Deep mutational scan, measured.
Amino acid sequence: GAYRMKIYDRDELRGQMSELTDDCISVQDRFHLTEIHSLNVLEGSWILYEMPNYRGRQYLLRPGEYRRFLDWGAPNAKVGSLRRVMD
């Protein structure tokens, strides 16, 4: 299947937008971000990790809009890595 997600540095799907279609071992290295404040999962399911290298707390992201970090259940906006959930 296809995988696509848009990430934003501000809440409510605002601010600088970056797009992912594959795994990202370090959000900071690739996008120069340490925080993601909202996101829109367009295709596929993903796991968001608090730390790089797929470590730390993890949150399942199904397709849909997440307008603030509380929407995916996190206590803050800190994001380290993102990985696709393969079928």
Rank of each mutant, 00 (worst) to 15 (best):
G1K: 13
G1W: 08
G1T: 09
A2D: 14
A2G: 10
A2R: 12
A2Q: 09
Y3Q: 15
Y3G: 11
R4G: 12
R4N: 15
R4T: 10
M5L: 08
M5N: 03
M5K: 00
K6Y: 04
K6V: 06
K6P: 00
I7V: 08
I7T: 13
I7A: 14
Y8D: 00
Y8I: 01
Y8R: 01
Y8G: 08
D9S: 11
D9W: 09
D9T: 12
R10P: 02
R10C: 08
R10H: 12
R10T: 14
D11S: 09
D11G: 13
D11H: 03
D11V: 13
E12N: 14
E12K: 14
E12F: 05
L13K: 15
L13D: 05
R14V: 10
G15P: 02
Q16N: 05
M17S: 07
M17W: 12
M17C: 13
S18V: 10
S18C: 12
E19M: 04
E19K: 10
E19I: 04
L20T: 11
L20P: 03
L20V: 14
T21I: 05
D22F: 06
D22Q: 14
D23G: 06
C24R: 01
C24A: 15
C24V: 06
C24E: 11
C24Q: 15
C24I: 15
I25D: 13
I25H: 06
S26H: 11
S26M: 13
V27F: 12
V27Y: 10
V27N: 09
Q28R: 07
Q28M: 07
Q28W: 06
D29H: 15
D29C: 10
R30D: 10
R30Q: 11
R30V: 12
F31V: 14
F31P: 14
H32N: 12
H32A: 05
H32D: 08
H32Q: 07
L33Q: 07
L33T: 09
L33N: 08
L33F: 08
L33V: 06
T34G: 05
T34K: 15
E35A: 08
I36E: 00
I36F: 08
I36K: 01
I36H: 04
I36S: 06
I36G: 10
I36W: 15
I36C: 07
H37D: 12
H37K: 10
S38D: 02
S38I: 03
S38T: 01
L39G: 02
L39D: 00
L39A: 04
L39I: 15
N40D: 13
N40Q: 10
N40A: 09
E43D: 10
E43W: 05
E43P: 02
E43S: 08
G44N: 02
G44C: 02
G44S: 04
G44T: 00
S45N: 09
S45A: 09
S45Q: 10
S45T: 06
W46H: 00
I47P: 00
L48M: 13
L48G: 03
L48N: 00
Y49R: 01
Y49F: 07
Y49W: 04
Y49E: 01
M51W: 05
M51P: 01
M51F: 10
N53C: 04
N53A: 06
N53H: 09
N53R: 05
Y54T: 01
Y54N: 02
Y54C: 12
R55E: 07
R55G: 09
R55D: 05
R55T: 10
R55Y: 05
G56D: 04
R57V: 04
R57S: 04
Q58T: 07
Q58N: 06
Y59D: 02
L60Q: 08
L60H: 15
L61G: 03
L61R: 03
L61D: 00
R62Y: 07
R62V: 05
R62F: 05
P63D: 06
P63H: 03
P63S: 08
P63V: 06
P63C: 04
G64Y: 02
G64T: 03
E65A: 12
E65T: 06
E65D: 06
Y66D: 01
Y66Q: 02
Y66M: 07
R67F: 04
R67N: 15
R67L: 10
F69T: 14
F69D: 14
L70D: 11
D71T: 07
D71A: 03
D71M: 12
W72R: 01
W72Q: 00
W72P: 00
G73P: 00
A74L: 09
A74F: 15
A74Q: 03
A74Y: 01
P75M: 09
P75G: 07
N76A: 12
N76R: 08
N76M: 12
N76D: 09
N76E: 08
N76I: 10
A77D: 08
A77I: 05
K78V: 05
K78H: 04
K78D: 03
K78W: 05
K78C: 11
K78P: 03
K78Q: 07
K78L: 08
V79W: 03
V79D: 00
S81Y: 00
S81W: 01
L82E: 03
L82Y: 13
R83M: 06
R83Q: 15
R83C: 12
R84V: 14
R84M: 12
R84H: 15
V85W: 10
V85R: 05
V85Q: 05
V85E: 06
V85L: 06
M86L: 13
M86K: 06
M86P: 11
M86I: 15
M86G: 09
D87K: 15
D87Q: 14
